[in-house]
């Protein structure tokens, strides 16, 4: 694609600011009209307003076609998924200048990439970066330290916006072929694999830090007194009760295929009864 860019003289050239403006629009409006029917379709289209205006400003038919083409179902993770927007912008620019790119080709790039990128993006972002930073923020905030929420939001926005901006611009720069090369290599697989390992380790740490469950029971046999928690449970495995609660939830959801809502109900009722009876505390 980059090569083609040099070969074909671009009459309708996008400026860098068109591409950047679209990125900024997307950062704000990526979910404004999120809906069950086509999810991010109209948000995708609206975010590319500066691009469409530049390319099809004096071509009403081209504009109609472009807008209708992008109103198709679309859904991806809004930060890492921005690479799709970048690629699509590059393709639209080529098309508007007469390159033989069909609307179908553009749409198949979108549908082909949105799933995998949503998967990678959600694992990395919602599943790893956000929980890690939240854990840091919460551990300060729960002590009443206002730096907790502040550090969290500053770190989060600087990390995510850096990623999102670069991914968007990279998509535009490299175009379809460049991205396909990256996607077909080991890079994406490596990133997914690393993220899932890191994610699992961090989740374990979160479980140990924030699931709070112990027993106040004291076993009394004649003169002999032994607290259940420190005398029996802790020597077996520290954190046995929190671990049990997590694995029970995991088992019910993953193996028994129960809805998270039902599992929450079971945990709520179970913990409440055991707490009210004084078995857990």
């Amino acid at each position: 694609m980059t090569k083609n860019n040099e070969d074909i003289k671009l009459e309708k050239k996008l400026t860098k600011s068109d591409v950047v403006k679209s990125f900024i629009r997307w950062s704000f409006i990526s979910h404004t009209n999120y809906n069950y029917e086509r999810l991010q379709a109209s948000m995708f289209t609206s975010s590319l307003k500066p691009v469409f205006k530049r390319l099809y400003g004096d071509d009403p038919d081209g504009m109609k076609e472009a807008l209708q083409r992008h109103m198709a179902f679309f859904n991806t993770e809004p930060h890492f998924g921005g690479v799709i927007h970048g690629i699509v912008i590059a393709m639209e620019e080529q098309k508007a200048n007469g390159a033989p790119i069909t609307g179908e080709a553009i749409n198949s790039i979108k549908t082909g990439l949105m799933g995998p990128l949503a998967g990678v993006g959600d694992t990395l972002w919602q599943g790893t970066i956000v929980p890690i930073l939240l854990a840091i923020g919460i551990s300060l905030g729960i002590e009443g330290n206002l730096l907790g929420p502040l550090i969290y939001i500053l770190l989060l926005t600087s990390i995510m916006w850096t990623i999102a901006y670069n991914v968007w611009m990279k998509g535009y720069e490299l175009g379809t072929e460049g991205i396909q090369k990256i996607l077909s290599g080991n890079l994406i697989q490596s990133v997914i694999m690393s993220a899932s390992i890191l994610g699992a380790i961090v989740l374990g740490a979160l479980g140990a830090s924030f699931v709070n469950l112990s027993s106040p029971i004291v076993i009394t046999i004649g003169q002999f007194q032994m607290p259940l928690q420190s005398g029996i449970i802790d020597p077996i495995l520290k954190g046995l009760l929190p671990l049990t609660a997590i694995f029970l939830s995991y088992y019910l959801m993953k193996v028994k295929r129960m809805k998270s809502l039902h599992v929450m109900g079971i945990l709520f009722v179970g913990a409440f009864i055991l707490g009210a009876l004084g078995i857990l505390g």
């Binding site: 979160l206 479980g207 709070n212 469950l213 929190p242 609660a245 929450m264 709520f268 913990a271 707490g275």
Partner: peptide, 9 residues
């Protein structure tokens, strides 16, 4: 107790 265990979900 409920408050302590719900993060498990």
């Amino acid at each position: 107790v409920v408050g302590g265990v719900l993060p498990a979900i």
